[in-house]
């Protein structure tokens, strides 16, 4: 119910936008290779399903695998750097620098080094994914409530117990905000890595479409990517709701 009440505004804005777009392309008779109308895109989206189905599937698989690897590495890096403060001071600047290397430049190099296989693609996705996750998790660990930490120490908790029973659960909400950002990045990362050379994927479908002036297909690809991002994002939100349900439960009573 609340989702509906909050959701109707953006949804109606999008519908209005599509209507304007449709009307404009009818009115000014824009050629479809320049800018197809929403209805043309919709038709191609339905008719082209058998053509792009396996592209879509391949991108989803690549995204999930890349995102999982990026998440694991991101969390592992955060834990290591958190438990070893000296290492953190040494490596943190390097991590930030790694984010300043443009992926568009790095990606072709990765292909040169690792060929056209799946490895360079996974590296690209991992690179864009791990940073938001690692930074969010490290911030979460660092912000652990001082009173709770004090209690755990007085109660005689070991370093491991403090981490497992206090710091980790405390960092979960922060970690999830990192995961949400990374989930959408990972779809973009997958598409970019497919541009570099792949046999299938939305990125490939998109390159083929634009080189043959099938603008409608380019738009189909754009909407597919947006939908994928949204679905991944929603999935992470569901996971978050389930994991930190104590937050919503507690707040219900107070507010």
């Amino acid at each position: 119910m609340t989702a509906f009440r909050k959701g109707w505004r953006p949804v109606s804005a999008i519908i209005l936008l599509f209507l304007l777009w449709e009307a404009a392309s009818l009115l000014f008779e824009v050629p479809s290779w320049l800018l197809p109308s929403p209805s043309q895109i919709w038709q191609e989206g339905i008719a082209g399903w058998p053509d792009y189905r396996y592209h879509l599937w391949s991108t989803i698989r690549l995204t999930i695998v890349g995102f999982s690897i990026g998440t694991i590495i991101g969390i592992a890096v955060a834990i290591c750097l958190h438990l070893l403060p000296k290492l953190r001071d040494t490596l943190y600047p390097l991590m930030i620098l790694s984010q300043n290397v443009p992926i568009i430049v790095l990606a072709p190099l990765l292909v040169i080094w690792f060929g056209f296989g799946v490895l360079p693609k996974l590296i690209v996705i991992t690179l864009v994914c791990f940073f938001p996750i690692a930074v969010a998790a490290m911030d979460g660990f660092k912000q652990t409530d001082a009173d709770l930490m004090h209690y755990m120490k007085m109660a005689g908790a070991t370093k491991g117990q403090i981490f497992r029973k206090l710091e980790w659960p405390f960092a979960l909400p922060a970690l999830f905000s990192g995961l949400k950002i990374s989930a959408t990045y990972s779809v973009m990362g997958a598409v970019i890595s497919e541009w570099l050379g792949a046999k299938q994927g939305i990125g490939v479908y998109m390159t083929l479409a634009s080189s043959s002036f099938r603008t409608d297909r380019v738009f189909v690809a754009i909407f597919l990517i947006m939908a994928l991002c949204l679905i991944f994002f929603a999935f992470i939100i569901l996971l978050e709701r389930w994991t930190v349900r104590w937050k919503t439960k507690g707040a219900k009573n107070n507010g």
Partner: peptide, 18 residues
């Protein structure tokens, strides 16, 4: 030596996720 006493701080310090 830690853990030799049981302690109750001024703030209740309950873990919010438990």
């Amino acid at each position: 030596k830690r853990g030799a006493i049981s302690y109750m701080p001024q703030s209740s310090s309950l873990l919010p996720w438990r």
